[in-house]
Design a protein around this nucleic acid. Structure first.
Lengths: 169, 169
DNA sequence: GTCAATATGACTGCACGCTGTCAATGCTCT
DNA sequence: AGAGCATTGACAGCGTGCAGTCATATTGAC
């Protein structure tokens, strides 16, 4: 077992582990920001996706924009609807896929949350610098695209090639 | 609601959202890597922490090293023990806090997982470049430290300053 | 030596995202 | 018009991490 440390110090391992920790820190920060307003990080993000769509997207569309599966967003959306923060409007193009929109209360709450976030976001960018923040964002996007490509290319050696959907290799 | 887009294009928002997506992509990649060996990302990471500690740490110590709370690691460790991959050895310094160690099967499995990971990790670093990977890792660490500092400094306006533990304003 | 503070494990409950499955809806091709 | 396929919402189950609580074990102050 003398190979564990070298595997951990691998640059890719450092990237992965640091990403996990940063992810946790960001969620913790987000939760702390919006908790006093009765929200959570996830609900806030869904409300943001709704606001960004101007209420023209159903749940599945929001999920695509957020990079999540439908079911995750559906649960949050239902809870937000139960809380009176979002409503489902008829969709002229699809009878079942109702359009998710913010209610008056939802929009007001989201504006308040946005104000709180922008204060923190400005402070964060001020500390690390505009250029560095932009470079970091680009790096994260690049890294994700590589990871996703790797994810698609990894083939399971213990898996027979019959039941595969996408493994075009 | 015309302020949603500007909040989303904020450099800090981009960083946060990209971090969430990268986190998800990494977990998906990790799961896919170790699934054929009967593991998950979380169990693999805990095994890694155990291997890195050389079996000299109890659950709480592993959790500290990983940046998680005890309970999360405890559950995984119990499951790994049930699967015969780790065992709990007596701790000369503490009767309850048994030392978590890999069993022979656990160590062998971890070595196999490590080999699989190193192949992918090398491919990833080869694509983005060694220097860029190192710079990215440093950036992530810096960003996390700033986010954690912000988390500690954020005070809740609707919260009376009596019940606070760490808010050294 | 005693007692409070701390550390640890055990247990419960919760939030979140995923997979899998099913029925209903909409779209495309023949 | 009809068949086949993709999309969508609904529902169930699972893995992971967190907070809270309690009992036990260890440590430190007195």
């Amino acid at each position: 077992m003398s190979d564990a440390p070298e595997a951990f110090s691998h640059p890719a391992s450092v990237l992965a582990l640091e990403t996990f920790r940063l992810n946790g820190a960001l969620i913790a920060l987000g939760d702390k920001l919006v908790a006093p307003l009765g929200l959570t990080s996830a609900r806030w993000q869904v409300m943001g996706a709704i606001a960004g769509s101007r209420g023209t997207l159903p749940v599945a569309g929001l999920a695509r924009n957020m990079g999540l599966v439908r079911q995750s967003v559906q649960r949050i959306a239902d809870e937000l609807a139960a809380a009176g923060l979002v409503s489902f409007a008829p969709n002229p193009h699809h009878r079942r896929a109702k359009l998710v929109q913010l209610t008056g209360r939802g929009a007001a709450l989201f504006e308040e949350v946005t104000a709180r976030w922008l204060a923190v976001a400005d402070a964060l960018v001020a500390e690390i610098g505009h250029d560095e923040a932009d470079r970091g964002g680009a790096f994260l996007r690049l890294l994700r695209s590589r990871v996703e490509a790797l994810h698609a290319s990894v083939v399971d050696p213990t898996d027979e090639p019959s039941g595969q959907k996408d493994a075009a290799a």
